[in-house]
Each structure stands twice: as C-alpha cells, then as structure tokens.
Amino acid sequence: MVSSINTDQQILTALAAGDRVATAQIYRVNHPIVNGWLIKKGGTSEDAADIFQEAMVVLYNKVQDENFRLTCSINTYLLSICKHLWLKKLQKLHKDPVSLFDNIEDTEMGNGSYNEDINVHKERELHYEQLNNALDQIGEPCRSLLKSYYHQDKSMQQIAKDFGYTNPENAKNQKYKCLTRLRKLFYNEQAK
C-alpha cells in the first residue's frame, strides 16, 4: 500500500510538469475504467473521452500546487471527478440523474471537495475563455505575436525575425504594447 502511494505521488509530480510518460500512464489505466463506467450509464465513448479529458485537466491543475496531496488514489479521484462531471452534464440536459449513482458511491459523493474542485475548474476555464476572447480581439500582429511568445515558446529573437522587427528589443517593445492592449480588453471582458 505504501509503495503504491509513493508511486502515485511520483506520477503526480511528473504529471504536474506535463510529463508525457506519466500522463500516458494515468490515461491508460483510467480511461478504460471511465469509459466502461460511462457506457454502462448510457453515455458514449465520445462522452467518456470528453469527460475524461476534463477530469485530467482538473487533476493537472490541482497538482500544480506543490503542497497538494491526494487523499485517495488517482483512480478513485479521477473516477469521482468524472462521475460528478457526468452528473452535471446530465442535469444540464434535464435528464434524470437518480439512476446514476449506486449506494456505495453515494457516501463518497457526500464529500464536497470534488464539487469544489470542479467549480474551481469551471471558474478557471471561464477565466481562460475570457483571456482567449481578448486575445482574439486585439488584432494582428498582436495576436500572433503574443501567441508565438506564450503558446509556441518562441524567443524574442525568433519573433523579431518572424514579424520583421529589426531587433529583439523592438519586438519586445511591441510585445509590451500588445500586452497593454490585451490588459484593457481583458479587464473589459471580465467586467461584462
């Protein structure tokens, strides 16, 4: 048991760093479980893929906190998050969720922490969506420039070359101008 907890913790640490091997391991163990469960509950494989991905993102964000310790196994955590996500999805569709959970799981569900994790996740998703909306609105070359820097990890040198600035310093100044515009748009977007 102890060794399994250690393994979990190691995997989670690697997951936090976006390690491919660790992520693939978690995926391989848990995806079939979630898939099987969801299909039993009347979902499709696509539903399972969607929900599992969301649950993985929830877990990924949780483990970004260095002090984070999982109080249950990864398997239990992911499955519980998936169940909650599915429940919420069904509630949205006004379908009857009563048949969803059997007795044993009900006690587990009493624990509000899963719900809290999901709420934090939804809030963060909304926040990122607003950010992306703002990014879409700032226009070119700002949008591409910021994406090059933040999403594609390009250096200022590379960006200067790509966007035709004479030197990285000029590109950097442009980046700051873009950030200023983004800031205005973003906080307007949030105020909505």
């Binding site: 976006g18 491919r20 992520t23 693939a24 995926y27 995806h31 893929a49 991905q53 993985m56 993102v57 990924y60 964000n61 990122y128 999403h151």
Partner: peptide, 13 residues
C-alpha cells in the same frame, strides 16, 4: 501551459 497539456492528452488519446 494548460493548452499544451490538453494537446498532450489528445495526442495520447
């Protein structure tokens, strides 16, 4: 960072 993680997930999937 999260977008990259989502891409990784899709890749693995």
């Amino acid at each position: 960072k999260q977008q990259k993680f989502r891409n990784l997930l899709q890749d693995i999937e």
